[in-house]
Design a binder for these strands. Sequence first.
DNA 1: TTGTCCCCTATTTTT
DNA 2: TAGGGGACAA
Length: 726
Amino acid sequence: MDLSVLNLQQLEAVLHKDGPLLVFAGAGSGKTRVITYRIANLIHTHGVSPRHILAVTFTNKAANEMKERLRHLLGDAARGLWVGTFHSICLRILRESGTAIGIPPNFVVYDESDQLEVVRQALIALNIDEKQFNARTIANQISRAKERLLTPEQYQERAIDFFERIVASVYRNYQAFLRSANALDFDDLLVRTIELLETQPLIRARYQDQFRYILVDEYQDVNYAQYVLVRLLAENHRNLCVVGDDDQAIYSFRGAEVELILRFEQDFPDAKVVKLERNYRSTQPILDAAHKVIQENTLRAPKKLWTERTDGAPITFTQAIDQEDEARIVADYIFQQVRQGKRRFKDFAVLYRTNAQSRAFEERFLRERIPYRLVGALRFYDRREIKDLLAYLRVVVNPDDSVSLKRIINVPPRQIGQSTLNAVQAHAAEWGISLYQALNDPRLLGTFTPKTLQAVQQFVLLIEELREFARTHSLTATVKRLLESSGYLAWLEQKGDADSLDRAGNLREFVTVVEGFERKLQDEEETPEDTLNAFLQHIALLSDIDTLDESRDQVVMMTFHAAKGLEFPVVFLVGLEQGIIPHALSETPRDIEEERRLLYVGMTRAMDELHLLCARERSVYGSRKAAIPSPFLRALADTPMPSLFQLRYGGAKPSPLQWTPPHRRQEPPKPAPEKPAPFLPGQRVHHPQHGYGIVVRTQEHVVTVMFPGGKGLMSFPLQGCPLEEA
DNA sequence: TTGTCCCCTATTTTT
DNA sequence: TAGGGGACAA
Ligand SMILES: Nc1ncnc2c1ncn2[C@@H]1O[C@H](COP(=O)(O)OP(=O)(O)OP(=O)(O)O)[C@@H](O)[C@H]1O
């Protein structure tokens, strides 16, 4: 195997065979590469069987890439390796061995919205007003508790105020509900795996023996439960290699604790520590700027980072008028670079703090026919029609899954309305049975009018018939059958509006996805039921980034969070404004430092070019608000940063960041009393603050003017613009 | 029971 | 801005 693609420090980490190992290093220093080559080396040089190796990645996509690279390095010798996220690995363990603690392998994985629904049900059962205690907040609290491995009882003991006591009772109820629906939420996957390993010595011994080498990427973002799981699994062989960078810890809102990586050397006093200092990804100007930003943080371990790419383009900073202008500037730049043959679309990434910011870019890119892929909060599988279909499938697997049943009982409408549903729910709650059991309970059915009774019985018949069908047919056939016999597809088509037809299209696409999944499983001998289970569980753990296809020539857009671990030749960081990053909701110094790390993660995704943008004005909830640059950019005050205008039109020499101090409020644009004078390119104009300039271009609503004296180009909305002919 | 219309509110980030 | 929920008529 060719280890010459590693530097000395990387080699040191890769060759370290037994015992705990910490690779602690900055962005782009080749940490992930170390993990990959360490695995390859263990298999190739030391003859370790792949099934004795467990590698944990942050996303499913990262797992797939690692598998792919190992296949490339080792060919078939890499088969049998365990690579996946914490959640997918726990899922696999629970499927294999969960029965020992009463988890049948066909459990359902509840996602966030299912979770919320369960909390709502619990609130109703406990007679708590949802307006008084927000279901989402409570669901979050429950998640936090599980991440700290607190049972409802333990949580209750620790509850210090009224709210927490409420949460404790909801939590207890919530767990009971999950159990009766044979469901696990995301956190349960970890919690129950740990429970399994802690209470079942034989099973623990088996997995501890199996995973002789454990490697964890992005260790700075593990939470307490994940930490406990790793320790538990590694306890015996102690061949644990963790890799991370405290400056890239950005998931504390999800319970992750950076302290866990900082504590590694105390947990394993004999740990070998390797630091990597050479960055292979970015040019010097990018690295310098990123370093200036992150250096402002106080809670960090200092680290060096250098690069041989000392000759890069300067980073740019551009203030746009508003978000549309921001999108326009980015689109123009991309278009120009592609047209000149310098770049392809897939070389570009647009990164932002919040998903809502993608909108202006989508619109602009659509208009300019720039192909793009949005990695969004809304997954394909989260679309309403797909979730409905999945709910049907879950009910087919497990009719006692009341959350799913409730979702589809009247979709499409089948005469089972709110009042019937209320009666069913009340009955189910009263007798402690599932909704489906209630629907079959003569005591309840007796109270229905003939019309309702018929509707209910038809529904039960539909489900039974589908269950029978699913037992004896392929997954694809079942899905097709379901779309027919539930009347779902017909319902959408009969509605006939654009939205419904769109949804119908998505459902057909879903059938294709199912076919693909089934084809991949072909070699494994599975019963139709197993296939269906595996499919549902698999989908529950997918995130949108996992479906990103990097071979397609398209610009990618995603949040800073989603970009973790990725790299792109040209990166635009947009909306770098106070209130967005740091986000207005971050308050404590700790929060602020995490926001700064987020910016750092974004900056360090760039290989060749980094472009920072912000807008002077932004629409929030539809109303326009003045915006000022993010205070984080102050760290770059002495960095020469030309704007994209200057880059394009030449003009003034790169100037330092023009800082608009926070106290100097931007004037909201005054509505123009008369039709604005049309400006022509080449025309001389005067601006009250910036003085004389030359118009370089006019568009429908915007005029761009070049000012002398290092000011470069500025754009103004024609509406209410203070420019005058000179 | 269904469908429509209008008002209100929520928005950080996600496995 | 949008989408969810409540009020109301058919
Ligand atoms: N020894 C090396 N020689 C050449 N290129 C390398 C070397 N090590 C890593 N690289 C390249 O550097 C880039 C960053 O590597 P990698 O993703 O492993 O870094 P990382 O430390 O995991 O980054 P991050 O923390 O930002 O996710 C990749 O393109 C990788 O191929």
